[in-house]
Every structure is written in C-alpha cells, then in structure tokens.
Design a protein around this nucleic acid. Structure first.
Lengths: 188, 188
DNA sequence: GCAGTACTGCACTGGTCAGTGTCAAACTGC
DNA sequence: GCAGTTTGACACTGACCAGTGCAGTACTGC
C-alpha cells in the first residue's frame, strides 16, 4: 500500500525536476516508478496533489538541514559554516528544485512562497538567530547581517547555478572569500 | 510585414513569461497580438524560434542597461550605483524573464547559459572593470569584489523575488545597507 | 482458506495544441 | 491601376495527455 508511495514520490520528483510541471506526464512517472498509472491516481488523486507532495517532502529535508546548521553555528567558526552551507545548497538536491519552483511560481504562487519561507527563509532566520553570538563580530541588525553572510558566501555561485548546469563553480574558494569579506564588514 | 514582428514578439514575451514555454500556446500569442496564427508561423517558423527571439530581445535590453551602468560607475558614488542596480534588476522586465529562463534551463540549456553570460554576467564584468577605480576602496580581486558588491546590494531581494511576487521588499534600504557593508569590507 | 484491499493492464474519453493547407482579401511597390 | 506579396479566417491532422472504468490478479490479515 504505502511502499508505492515513496517510490512514486521519488519518480515524480525526478520527472518534475527534469521537465517541469506541465512537461511531465503521469504515465512517465508511473513507468519510472514501476507502477501502473492507476496506482498513482489511487494514491495521489491527481497530478497537482502529487506535485505538492513532492514539494512537501523537499521542505521536510530543508527543515532537517536547517536544524543541523543551527548546531554547526553553535560549534564551528564562520568559515566552517560557510563551507557547509554551500555544500548543501549548491547540490543536486536543492538547485533543481529551486529551478522547478521558480519556474512554476506563477502556476503555484503559494507553494513557491511556502517553499521560500520554510527553506531559504528558515536558513536566514537560523543565521540571524546565531550569528550575533559569534565572537569578534559586531552586529546591530541581525537579519541584514544574516542576509549579507548568506549571499556573500553563496550568492554568486547560486545565481549562476540556477542558469547553468555544468560549471566549474569552485564553491569552496568563493565560500571562504565570502566569509572573509563578511568578517571584514562585521568585525568588532 | 515587419510591424507584426514586434507586436508578436511582445505578445510572445507576455505569454511565455506568464505560463512558461510549454504552458503557452501559439493561438494565445496570435490572439494577444491581434494577428492570425498563420502570420506567426509565416514570420517565425515555429514556437521554439519565437521563444529564442524573445530571449534575444531581452538580452539586447540587458546589454543597453549594462552600458548605462558603466557610465553610472564612472560618475556616481557606490550608493547611487547600488540604487540604480536594484531598480533595474528588481523590475517587472527582469524578474519574470529570469524565472522563465531558470525554469526552462533544462529544456534550453545553451539559451539559459547565454542569457546568464550576456546579462548578469556582463553586469558583473562591468562592475569588475570599474569598481577598482573607485576612490577609498582597496580591491585585490576585482571579480570577487564585483560579485560581493552585486550580491550584497541585491542578492537577498533578488532571490526572494524569484519565488515571491507580491513583495514588501524595500529594496532601497537593502541596497544602501549592502553598499555600506561593501564599503566596510573593502575600504582602504 | 476467506474477505478485503492493493495493484495491474488496457482501453477509452475529452480536451489541448503545434503546425499545415487553402483561398480570398488587404496591402505593397511601381 | 496592376502584379506580387503579406495576411486573415478557418478547418484539419496528428500527437499528446489527464483522468476514468473495469475486470482480473496478487497480496494482506485473520
């Protein structure tokens, strides 16, 4: 009954991420999952519900990541946090999903908004909550500082990755350079 | 003959940006342009060619903007440049097109890459060429500094705008805060 | 073993859509 | 005004696809 659920969900994720919402057909998802189309409809009702389930699953992963990030922030230095951050965001799990939701943000506005709020938004809030406690920093506006940290560290590489798949994005170097610039801008 | 071209192009832009490549049908474009479908096909041959023409036109606009930015950089202070930059990028001309190309980057990889290179990439190169000449700054790596400037100034608002339409994004304040942080990180 | 549920295979409906063909009307340069 | 080209109206083809119906098989707990 529900072994299929997860398999279908994974196949749907693959399909939607590859061809977008309209460009993916349910027959393909069913075939990829090794399941009959009827089963897909029995479990998920319709294509849109399936799509939302895919996004929900991705949000759950982002929330787990954010908890891990909170832990890192309490333990690590900025450079370590920066590298961890780019490693997670510039991944094949996150980038294609971002592309998908950005591309479908007109068809599913609330869904894109919800994803933003509960994934990148949550990361920013986590940063804002913990950065002020880091030694040697002087932070007045925690939210702005969190944004500056995040986008110094991964902004350029992230933006490029959204457009371009196959790059030599050298994220480590950029993460360190970003963290260094952040330190210069926000040191006490 | 070619009065139609521009009208069709504008209608296609509207359609594609609203519903994506697959989600837009040529009949709608023709109707929006007040032109018969036959005329669309006579001029552009097929849907894909029309799509590419839309993107080409957008790139041309970006290139003009980049030239204006180069001028601003030679004349204005950082804060002025920052405000001009966010004003242009966080606009209804740029954001929807970015969404479109990011969403279609798997269907048209070279096109997305070309857009990135000739629009945001060009802006970054322009910044890298001019920032080192600004007084009071100490810049070793111009490319990295250009990325840091751009993403401090508009990164957070841009990322959010890609997911979320109806913004309270207060871009001016963010632009100034970003420019200020950049100054702190890169002052001599 | 039985009852009930999950699943499959397959055919089918109704709708959408890219792209074509045709022919007459409108417009162009000359 | 005329010859040639551009455009419009409209019907049509072929393909694709979401979602349904159904009848039968596999699997579950009891």
């Amino acid at each position: 009954m529900t072994r299929s659920r997860a398999i279908i969900l994974a196949a749907a994720h693959t399909g939607f991420v590859r061809h977008g919402y309209v460009g993916t057909n349910v027959d393909e998802i069913a075939a990829e999952a090794g399941v009959s189309k009827r089963t897909v409809y029995n479990i998920y009702g319709d294509k849109e519900t399936l799509f939302r389930a895919v996004v929900d699953a991705a949000i759950a992963i982002a929330e787990r990541f954010s908890a891990a990030l909170a832990h890192d922030l309490a333990v690590d230095d900025l450079e370590g946090v920066a590298e961890r951050l780019v490693g997670s965001v510039l991944s094949d799990r996150v980038i294609p999903l971002r592309r998908l939701l950005i591309g479908e943000s007109r068809r599913f506005p609330e869904l894109a908004r919800e994803y933003y709020d509960r994934a990148p938004g949550l990361v920013l809030r986590t940063l804002a909550a913990h950065l002020p406690r880091h030694p040697g920093l002087r932070i007045d506006d925690a939210e702005t500082a969190a944004e500056h940290f995040a986008f110094l560290v991964l902004g350029p590489a992230l933006d490029r990755a959204l457009f371009d798949d196959d790059e030599p994005r050298d994220p480590r170097r950029r993460a360190r350079a970003g963290a260094a610039a952040f330190r210069r801008a926000y040191s006490r």
